[in-house]
Amino acid sequence: MKSSLVLLGCAMLALAGSADVRATITQELPINDSAIMDGIPRNLSEFGFFQDPKGRVPHGNLISYELNTPLYSDGADKLRYVYVPAGGRIDASGDGLLQFPVGSAIIKTFAFGEGETQRYIETRVLLNRADGWLALPYRWNDDQTEARLALAGARIPITRPDGEEISYRVPNKNQCKTCHSKNGDVIPIGPKVRNLPGEFLKGLAERGFIGTLPAGLEQLPVWGDDSASNGKLARAYLDVNCAHCHQPGGSASNSGLDLRWEQGDPHAIGIRKPPVAAGRGAGGHKVSIAPGDASASILVYRMESNDPGVAMPELGRSTTDDQAVAVMRKWIEEMPTS
């Protein structure tokens, strides 16, 4: 087994320059289900999620997907895949998170640049094991030939395609859990039915992974869609970027702020809500959202700041999401003041 892997690896290195690596691979190695279920692989390649060491060619059993409204990560592009073991069934009742069977994996690569200049920074994997989900970060090397486990995370200087120099943070294993946590358990946060393209869910159904399609597809607007209502964009952004911590059972539950899409109580989403433990994060403002006055709203203040201790989200960004700030400002300015 091991020697054949090595041989294949050599073959791929030799082929790396060819235009279509995939076409030359006649027999695909299976995904390493035992690595998903047990142990902490030191290299991303050990999972067999990709057919080439550079991670450009996904295994045929990976299903790629996108989200209508994605999480902002300093403007990184994300390549998302899900793997469900043969015969596995996904529970897709309700409009929330898909419930994946044990043995599933979610794989997300963070990259900057396009085409020839595209560089992978890190690949994060979520593994659904018998005792629950495990989140692991893998960091790509400078030569882009392998991604190694980065349990302790890393801080990497990156020049974005727009020329901005940023200090990009690869989260450590615990920081993965900070966001991916509900009542102390690790859970996925992205693949919610309401935020997934209908096409993707239909694809899952066609492959037999889900039975009947759930209701409530695509409630969240596509980020950047000019025809979407600004209020919906704002609530979608909060649901995707903030609510994994700011909800009951989440990492910021003690704040009392609940930014989930389905939360209908104005106070719970921050309207006229005083801060609890914000410290200097309050920025001298008295409430999270001051209707009609975005500049007096803690929520906007913290989204605009890049200062650790003030900036929200606390993890995963070192730059401001200007587009999101504009949406949020407009949403708050248009709120009725009485």
Binding site: R155, S167, Q175, T178, P308, L315
Partner: peptide, 12 residues
Amino acid sequence: NQAGSGEGLLIT
């Protein structure tokens, strides 16, 4: 010289 996170040390 901390550049990220909401606290120095977090215990969960």
